[in-house]
Design a protein around this nucleic acid. Structure first.
Lengths: 120, 120
DNA sequence: ATTACTGTATTAAATGCTTAGTACAATAAT
DNA sequence: ATTATTGTACTAAGCATTTAATACAGTAAT
């Protein structure tokens, strides 16, 4: 999955979301070592400082932790990863419903629109 | 509907989206006069310059136009408003599906999750 | 005529994001 | 021991966003 960073918001936020997705979808598993800050930065096409900021922000959620000089690792806590995935899903659905309701649709109408989209 | 501006992105972009929603949902109808830049700014709680930027950006889509000194008006073109609504709906649905697919779900699985959410 | 209101323009300052360049200390590999 | 790699820290610059404070010209209302 390419990084696909755009200018819709701060790059470092998009990076955080991207890595969260990679963890939630199992690209990175519990205990895995992440590529180095510099490698990730090169891969994403951003400045190493930007990647560093994204990673140290991610750190504060406990999802990843850094081993001072040997690298950065995904949490060993599998439940935390499971919760992350649940949370990401809920965030997406709630955001979608919130926006559609702003456009004047009821939950039932939204469901119909989604059905129509899938069968199209 | 309150403005609910947050720091997820540029304020002026959120303002544009908010006004587009107001037009799409019929709060403002074809030919309606908009409140003045200053009034809208006060209502949204932003600097008049920020509102001015949002409005002049909106102008370039043809959705609104300014009558130099008498005010700013919604387009008379009803089709343009209809197209706007369709476009906003499609954007929301496509964005939602794109994000859910990033999380590893198929269209059918997404539909099931939405159904579950509605009946909850 | 005067007053209030309209969109618009301009300049300045503060802030946050991003890039750039450099440096240091600790570990791993050789 | 030496070298490469790790996370981390720091400063500087450019840029966009936002706020602030004014100002001007045209229209509407009185």
């Amino acid at each position: 999955m390419p990084w696909n960073l755009n200018s819709d918001g701060p790059i470092f936020v998009q990076i955080i979301e991207h890595i969260q997705n990679d963890i939630a979808t199992g690209k990175y598993k519990a205990g895995d070592k992440l590529p180095s800050v510099r490698d990730l930065a090169a891969e994403a096409g951003v400045n190493p400082n930007t990647m560093q900021k994204a990673l140290s922000d991610l750190e504060q959620t406990g999802l990843v932790h850094s081993e001072r000089t040997s690298g950065r690792f995904i949490t060993e806590n599998e439940n935390m990863i499971k919760d992350l995935k649940t949370s990401l899903i809920n965030t997406q659905i709630e955001e979608f419903f919130k926006n559609m309701k702003k456009l004047g649709f009821s939950e039932e109408e939204i469901l119909q629109l989604v059905k129509k989209y899938v069968s199209k």
